[in-house]
Nucleic acid binder design. Structure first.
Lengths: 338, 338
DNA sequence: CTGTTAGCGCGTTCAC
DNA sequence: GTGAACGCGCTAACAG
């Protein structure tokens, strides 16, 4: 009852396979009656077209690839969900290509998986690609788009990271903070991208433009993780001499780590220390973290829609779009006591 | 240079397509010299077999499906990474089937996507499936396995949730707590599974078996999220009368929410309140949360390995396996003050 | 409106 | 060790 092919259906309905194909795919040139009859029979037989066969015939897989540096981090998993939302609505499949677990064979991934015509389009989640990889991708000539960060030669959906970081920094400055430290995320394993640099640059320039002193010793790496935020906070708190009254963190996960470490030491947030992040991570509201919010679900959704439009034949459907962001004030920031 | 088919390679190498096929797939009956020559030419031409065509011919897709209720929650995203690890090592693709975003058309997912012979095997991440869905899945006759929770009629890789919850509860009791509340996760949108029930049952029975009183009013829902944990904590803290000295949370995310709310109210953890969770979420170490740890990456990896073994022809490769768990003591639990 | 006929690109007998 | 030929299941172009 399950393993039926289009021929079985055609035979059962006394029509040709071509008619079955047309009827099922909703193409014209089939009388309403025959269509109804075929559909009924197909349903009853549990017939579903083989994707391999139709893929071979059409050259389309109805599958979109999502290339991610990690899947278990907030931004990426949410962006994946956003892409998925659109794909499901359009009966497309989602092939997850995770670079995080890749042990050395990363290049093979591009030369094989990517090229096997297994996907009709690709979403690249903020990821720095090697020149050879970019070349491979462009050779496939499938629609491409980047989400969450710029990729050279790609259209992109992402916030203006410079402006976002500037907004966060300015919030601290406007509250009256003068001694502001930064926890940033550095590019460890080459999976990373330009976003950290932009946020870093914005922080420094905003500080200086406001007449404040930029202190290199108050710039520590948090690796974009909670654990990294904790250890970054330790380094700051353990340093001798003057302490910052506020910390700008390049991501909420790091900011949450900073808050946890502060709490452990009895440093009160926001009385003794203001903390601000970027992202609006799921945990941030609960933790009362002030942040510059962005919405990866929406970004993923938008990107997927553009790709599908492009696949549907709309010219230049894939464009670069600036995603919105906004300051969300919560309890972790306040004017400095002194 | 990219869009080459096996015929192009065959022509360039002056051999038949059959020989190219054998050479590339490492089959015998090809002289070392010809094989080397063919491989060189294929590489140079950037040839990669079309997955649709080979899929049609072999009936195999080299793709494994992962059916998940959500992708952006800790357990699921980590389990996906675990599965992915094994698939990448074996040149398999991962098709992500997310039920979370599914707006009503859930059944169609099963009748179409699942059945289109698009995947060679399926991993179900702790998810309650409807009888009709189970039927569909079994009809496909592909290897199946459940991870993280029992699915009727499936082999499974998961911890013994009863024992894990019992361990957590006992830890609190052994510390001397007598007034213990529970934050559990209820089955809201039918995406859920039996795990919450098991943990709940273990908590109650352990309490009673230790001669402690079980108070229904101290059992509140936290929806398995941080935000849910926060609001559960509020309900507990706002209730008049006696307060619990410890709270058992059925997941770390809820426990973290409880800790955040406690902190906001000046309730000291662990002096005034002990909190324990289950999972060992990425944030738990940073937050100092005592928990019963489990490892979804490992569970996913194990499940994927069994599936691939089964696909490789090993009989009964897919079995049920009890995953390990252990108590990880951190700062959030201590003996009650009084 | 419907049927016939070619492929889509590869794997796989079988002969050689 | 190698090649020719068929078939996987479906779609597309053309006939009717």
């Amino acid at each position: 009852m399950i393993a039926s092919s289009i021929e079985d259906v055609a035979a059962a309905a006394n029509v040709s396979t071509a008619t079955v194909s047309r009827a099922i795919r909703g193409l014209p040139r089939v009388s309403p009656q025959t269509r109804a009859r075929i559909l009924a029979i197909a349903t009853e037989m549990g017939y579903v077209a083989s994707s391999a066969a139709s893929g071979l015939a059409t050259g389309r897989t109805r599958t979109i690839g999502v290339l991610a540096p990690y899947v278990s981090r907030w931004f990426f998993s949410r962006a994946i969900e956003g892409v998925d939302l659109v794909l499901q609505q359009n009966q497309y499949n989602l092939m997850l290509i995770n670079l995080g677990g890749y042990g050395g064979g990363r290049e093979r991934l591009f030369e094989h998986t990517m090229l096997r015509k297994q996907i009709d389009a690709l979403v690249v989640l903020c990821l720095a690609l090697l020149p050879s990889e970019l070349e491979h991708l462009h050779l496939t000539e499938i629609p491409l788009i980047a989400v969450g960060g710029p990729v050279k030669g790609f259209h992109q959906v992402c916030i203006d990271d410079y402006q976002a970081a500037k907004l966060a920094t300015q919030h601290l400055i406007e509250l009256g903070h003068q001694r502001i430290a930064q926890v940033l995320g550095e590019d460890k394993n080459e999976l990373n991208f330009e976003v950290p640099k932009l946020r870093d640059k914005a922080f420094e320039e905003t500080l200086v433009n406001s007449g404040l002193r930029f202190r290199p010793e108050w710039e520590v790496d948090g690796e974009f993780t909670v654990a990294g935020g904790v250890s970054a906070a330790r380094r700051l708190f353990d340093a001798p001499g003057e302490q910052p009254t506020a910390i700008f963190c390049a991501s909420d996960e790091m900011a949450l780590g900073v808050m946890m470490e502060a709490q452990r030491r009895g440093i009160r947030v926001p009385q003794d220390l203001s903390v601000i992040g970027i992202d609006n991570h799921e945990f941030s509201a609960a933790a009362g973290l002030t942040t510059v919010a962005q919405d990866p679900v929406e970004q993923g959704r938008l990107a997927a829609e553009m790709l599908l439009n492009e696949l549907a034949g709309k010219a230049d459907a894939v464009r670069s779009v600036a995603a919105p962001f906004q300051l969300v004030k919560r309890g972790s920031t306040a004017a400095p006591l002194a």
